[in-house]
Nucleic acid binder design. Sequence first.
DNA 1: TATGAATGAGAGTTCATTCAT
DNA 2: GATGAATGAACTCTCATTCAT
Lengths: 201, 201, 201, 201
Amino acid sequence: MAGTKDGNGNGGAKPVAQRLLATATKLFAEQGYDRTSVQEIVDAAGVTKGALYHYFGSKDDLLHEVYGRVLRLQQERLDHFADADAPVERRLRDAAADVVVTTIENLDDTKIFFRSMHHLGPEKDKQVRAERRRYHERFRALIEEGQRAGVFAAGIPADLVVDYHFGSVHHLGTWYREDGPLSPQQVADHLADLLLRALRP
Amino acid sequence: MAGTKDGNGNGGAKPVAQRLLATATKLFAEQGYDRTSVQEIVDAAGVTKGALYHYFGSKDDLLHEVYGRVLRLQQERLDHFADADAPVERRLRDAAADVVVTTIENLDDTKIFFRSMHHLGPEKDKQVRAERRRYHERFRALIEEGQRAGVFAAGIPADLVVDYHFGSVHHLGTWYREDGPLSPQQVADHLADLLLRALRP
Amino acid sequence: MAGTKDGNGNGGAKPVAQRLLATATKLFAEQGYDRTSVQEIVDAAGVTKGALYHYFGSKDDLLHEVYGRVLRLQQERLDHFADADAPVERRLRDAAADVVVTTIENLDDTKIFFRSMHHLGPEKDKQVRAERRRYHERFRALIEEGQRAGVFAAGIPADLVVDYHFGSVHHLGTWYREDGPLSPQQVADHLADLLLRALRP
Amino acid sequence: MAGTKDGNGNGGAKPVAQRLLATATKLFAEQGYDRTSVQEIVDAAGVTKGALYHYFGSKDDLLHEVYGRVLRLQQERLDHFADADAPVERRLRDAAADVVVTTIENLDDTKIFFRSMHHLGPEKDKQVRAERRRYHERFRALIEEGQRAGVFAAGIPADLVVDYHFGSVHHLGTWYREDGPLSPQQVADHLADLLLRALRP
DNA sequence: TATGAATGAGAGTTCATTCAT
DNA sequence: GATGAATGAACTCTCATTCAT
């Protein structure tokens, strides 16, 4: 009768679907999507394959869930900072720093996202690219706004600047360690600072 | 060690081993290492599996050859520019621009390198990491030299600056297109410029 | 307490068991028994798996219901025509034509019957074969009666004639189309006529 | 050391591909295509799954090989008898009898053919239907020729007569037993006789 | 040198059935 | 009566690698 499954001998308290997704995320980030077998996922989550396929249509579906989470989160946060009532330098700095913090806080998801984008089938690929582009363009608009206002250097293609900054975000998964010398916020402040300094006229 | 195996009547002009490596590189870059089967490689190269296993001990060996090529090339070029007789700003700018051009000119290799590093077994991993670190440190030394000389801003951790720049290099594989509006040299100049501007005191 | 299940919010008017059987029959005929999953059946019938297993012990049970229906119906009709008070030519012609019409009118059931007989387990197989044999023998008796009476050619084994005619009945599922040029009754008349002509002395 | 594989402990002397096809044919005829697993086939043939997939692209491919064999054989033989230099009654009788003998001699293949036609994918289905139609039309032409010449009854649609006869051929798989009272030739003669008698004016 | 048949382990997925609710 | 989450076994197919020739 109890609504939750807490306390049964099943080895995990969380609902099965959530547990599977969390487990898959961790393993995909550690080993890569292709190197992680469905069997490993279900073993680690303490269920059987049938259970996984009850909740997810395929192994790919698990990946898409992660993608969706990352894309939604980042778009929301960018919109929030870009719409703020503040000078464009402030808005760009805040947005640039926030994406760094958010990325570090969800480093597993982000690693998977950047490493596995090429696994998408054609339709899903279209869709994800469209969402990526929307994000990219919102960011670029901020830079162009500053360039028109004369507060950012005008000689550099705004598109390239976006990729410049996102390169450093993308790269975080390669080098950032939780036990390193810098907190997420410190890394974020430094990277945002580098971006703003580079844009000084 | 023998450089060439020319002279067989196999139907392709290049020596078999070279043709296999080139084919594998292309396919790995397009589809990923795990998604590319040995059968695909030998079919595309116009040879049989036996031939591949005659020249390479395993599929992994092909990957390591690519790694080796990338690492050797980039280290050589960095050493060349860092050792030049010029002010540190010049040396850093040249090195930073050159790694961009070199990366774009070998984009397939670089894509494979960044995407597949996590496939390495423990021993090979150690070795590759050591070479990467050596490269990283050489680059960092340039930045620290500039900071000590007062020509670069001192408040920013030099390590972070290296990753900042390499993020944008790493990211090239994601967005750079041969038929885009910017030539490799133009992209390189812009990215080096952004780095140097960010480092202005 | 209500005899019917009309009026519940379930979306279908017929009792659940009947709806399941009708749906299963249609799908088995279209796709074959093995290619039709229990999930497909319950989805198409608008119920859940639990409901199916409440009414039927197994997927095989659904098949047996179809068999039973076909066998019972055909035996009844054959008995009816064979017992009539008419010359043997008339009785055979009527029976031969009727099985054609009845088969076409229940073409789904008949397709399933002929295609899936080999799915039966040993016990059920015995039982079905026994009923088939009874039917076959009743039909054969008519032919032998005519042969003894001298109205049918005597040189042909009666068993073979039965299989000859049933071949054409069995085959109907392969070629008969509702929208073809001949009505069920026309097909039946032609096939019965062919049989009677073949039996002319 | 022996060049052939005779006498090794492998369990079979024939080339692997032939052995696989023969084994699959037998099992498909006995149990049906869907009920026969690839594992059963390779176990019975004394090889491993990899070997099967080395020679055949898929389980379906095995089926298509059987189809191809049946279609080719029957078309050749029909053409042979229909093109003969003899009165039309003779040519029809010979063709009708021959298809019976050929079917019985390849009863496994024929069972599979008739039972599994609905497993074909859309493209293969088109192709097989086209070949079937060609066969059907050749046979029908013989009947129409006889009807025009006045040696066969004219009132019966020739298409229906073809299906009438092929029904009895199709049905052979259901009842014919090697150890029954009639030889293949005897069955063939009886069935051809029934057809010709039915066609008498 | 080079072949390609064959292996064997494991991949992702499906499915009839059960059972606590 | 009816649900649907979960099982567990079986399914087709893939693949890196080996080895007799």
